[in-house]
Amino acid sequence: MPAHLYVRRPSPTTVCFTVSNAPSRQTWSAKLAFAVEILLRAVIFALVLLTDAAKLRHLDLGILRGRIDWTTGVGRMAARLADRYHWSIVAGASAVLIYAVWRRRYTEESLLVIRGLGVQTSTSSSMYWSSATTRFIPTTQIQDIVIHEAFKGFEVRFYLAIIVEGEPEVVVVFPNLLPRRRILEEVWRGARHCLFQPQPKPSPSSG
């Protein structure tokens, strides 16, 4: 899905540019589909844990003793499923399903610009339980923010880069999504305006 740009301005000296390829959830149908997806993930995760517990139910584990009733419909189903396959198959299938449940289907990358302090780049993790990868660059180390072009396969792609003093390589903003040039130009103008805008001169006092 194409990347979209979202701009937030918490204060006159702060602006956050977020690029995401997540599907839009503005309509009721999209919100309902998202809710169904979350519910389905929760059900699959619960069933995986129950099946794993059924595979271990014959072991003398205090954490499972008396906590699950295997005579219920769901309990019997999990027990039959666990007893039908070898433990290696159950463990492998559980790992794949848990990975699928916790895997994020989209990527979000952001550039936070704070005048007088610096910028912070952020890239979301591919898993819900893992935090985003961030880096803060002080204003004193930023030489410039530019738009470069490079070849990706047989295609020319543009990317936003921060030139950092003392570093041989530039810091690429939005490195995974590499949004369209129109988005990069909007971010470039907004970031430079916020970061390098000169402070207004004080008006002379009347004497």
Rank of each mutant, 00 (worst) to 15 (best):
R189V: 11
P10Y: 03
F196P: 03
I183H: 00
I114D: 07
S20C: 09
R192W: 01
A79C: 08
L56A: 09
T140Y: 13
A22G: 06
Y106D: 13
H4E: 15
K152I: 08
A33R: 11
A30W: 01
L47K: 02
R41P: 15
F136H: 12
T72F: 00
V48M: 04
G75K: 00
L47Y: 00
S11T: 05
Q143S: 11
G66V: 06
A53R: 01
I89L: 14
G66F: 04
L160R: 00
I137V: 14
P2A: 02
I162G: 05
A54L: 07
Q143W: 09
S130F: 12
S94H: 05
K55L: 15
H148N: 09
F174E: 08
E165D: 12
L160D: 12
R9M: 07
R157V: 12
R157F: 10
F17P: 06
T71Q: 15
F34S: 14
P138F: 02
R9N: 12
T134I: 04
G190Y: 03
Y159F: 13
G153C: 02
T139Q: 14
L81D: 07
A3N: 09
Y6T: 10
E37F: 05
A95P: 12
R104L: 09
H148Y: 05
H58A: 10
L184K: 00
G66L: 01
C194Q: 09
K152M: 09
E185I: 01
F154D: 12
R157H: 15
K152N: 15
A35H: 05
T51W: 03
E109F: 00
R182C: 04
R80Y: 09
A191G: 01
S206N: 06
V101E: 15
R65G: 10
R76I: 06
T18V: 11
V7Y: 05
G190H: 01
V101N: 14
P10Q: 09
T134Q: 11
T133M: 03
A54T: 04
A93C: 14
R115W: 00
H86G: 12
F196G: 03
P168G: 11
I44C: 07
S88E: 13
D83T: 06
R189D: 13
A54Y: 02
V19D: 14
Y159I: 08
T14K: 04
Q120N: 10
G116T: 00
V146L: 10
S94I: 09
L177C: 08
A78G: 08
T71R: 11
G75V: 00
H86V: 06
E169T: 08
T140A: 15
V74F: 10
A191Q: 06
I145K: 03
G118Q: 04
P168Y: 04
M1L: 14
L195I: 03
E149L: 01
E186I: 00
A191T: 12
E149F: 00
S11H: 03
W129E: 13
S122V: 14
S203P: 01
D69A: 07
N21F: 06
